[in-house]
Amino acid sequence: MIAYLVTIAILVSIAALVGLALNLQWGQAGLVNFGVVGFVAIGAYATALLAPQIGWFPAMLVAGALSAILSAGLALLSIRLEENYLAIVTIGFGEVVRLVILNEGWLTRGALGIADIPRPFASLGQAIGGDTVFIVFALALVAVVFALLECMARSPFGRVLRAIRDDATVTAALGKNVFALRVRAFAVGGAVMGIAGALHAFYLTYIDPSQFTPIVTAYAFMAVIAGGRGSNFGLLIGACSIMALLEGTRFLKDFVTVIDGVQLSALRLGLIGAGIVLLLILRPQGLAPEPKRRAADLLSNDERAA
């Protein structure tokens, strides 16, 4: 049971990181990203390939940086697009990443995947025992990212982002460079997704392309919707409740003997789909919504003058 709770805590940490990133891009900056899984996969593969050579910490930084750079590149090309089109471009990006990972076997070992990814503080872990060290690491990572993103949300940058989301025309008229701000928001979100990928790789110590399906993107959207778009605190609650729900359904197998493993996973994925639709309809404001403000009110007087 303890081992089980540890697993859930770590899965929640990974989901929370991905969710926080999407919450920045979509929740706060209003930029939809359906290619979340692609950025997570890039982070995971960068970590898996580099950690044995240069150590876990530099590898994690490179993972974040690489995701951020690709994210910024995609944003430079497509962030001007109307949101339906941005959605489609990002879906396509996610698929391209999956195809590249699958087909560039010389680098990624293709469908075989990469094994023996070293965990942070592995020796300490052996000394104290099991996953305890890793769970502390995962929670600390979430705490640091959460604190940084929360500071950013309260900073002038965060306020301008929300102003752009609510009314881009007014914000542009007030002299803000909407395009550059959007690209930056997208890049920061990409960095966090890359770090989430690193945590994923560290935890499983083995990655392959089958772990990076569009379902990862769906989880992130559900967490953001459940938490209430824009609210980082709500996002944490959203990520916890979704993972609890998902992992809870694993127990179904003990009680319902007529369904097999494939059916169980179909049931869980179908539940995610139903959950997204139901949450949108029944609780549009999420569990812990962001306070509602007018676009112009988000910009204080000195910022307008700047």
């Binding site: 379902i215 769906a218 959207f221 919707i225 789909g273 639709v277």
Partner: peptide, 9 residues
Amino acid sequence: VASMGVSLM
């Protein structure tokens, strides 16, 4: 986003 949910279902 809702149609993504419908798609999964």
